[in-house]
Amino acid sequence: MNLSKFFKNAFLVMLACLVLSACATKKVQNQMQGDVYTGTETVEYLASGVPDRVFFATNESVLTTASRDTLRKQAEWLRKNSKVNVVLEGHADERGTREYNLALGERRANAAKDYLMTYGISGNRISVISYGKERPVDSGSNPLAWSKNRRSVTVKAN
């Protein structure tokens, strides 16, 4: 009797574990597509409906569809607010060498800059700085944290 009770309990524990882990994976999946962050947890806004940042895949500086959408919103807002200059801050995750990450952050911020320029924003209004892996927003050591940190953030310069 004791034994069957034990198995029953063990089964319940296992079931609970499965349900919990499924939830955890689902949560991560909702916030990432491939390994690009698609959540909104860390995102701030330049103005209502204008997100300040775009996210990248590991080792990539290619803009995703969502990123291009965000940058078009930024460009539109910048056209309306022609006095505002911006700094694009490029970042990398912690899974790379420091020097390469500095170059990668610069490349990412420039990918965003180029896109803003094709939507009519003068290069004179945009400056670029790379922080490499020096300024993560999420200090976790896991794929989700890294995806939040691979980013280019548009910051008002004045």
Partner: peptide, 25 residues
Amino acid sequence: GMTFAPRFSPDGKKIIMSFAMDGNS
């Protein structure tokens, strides 16, 4: 633009480094 990854030449007369411009280092 950003300059980074510096080192001296073995005779100490030069600094070698990367310079990043328009997304290219």
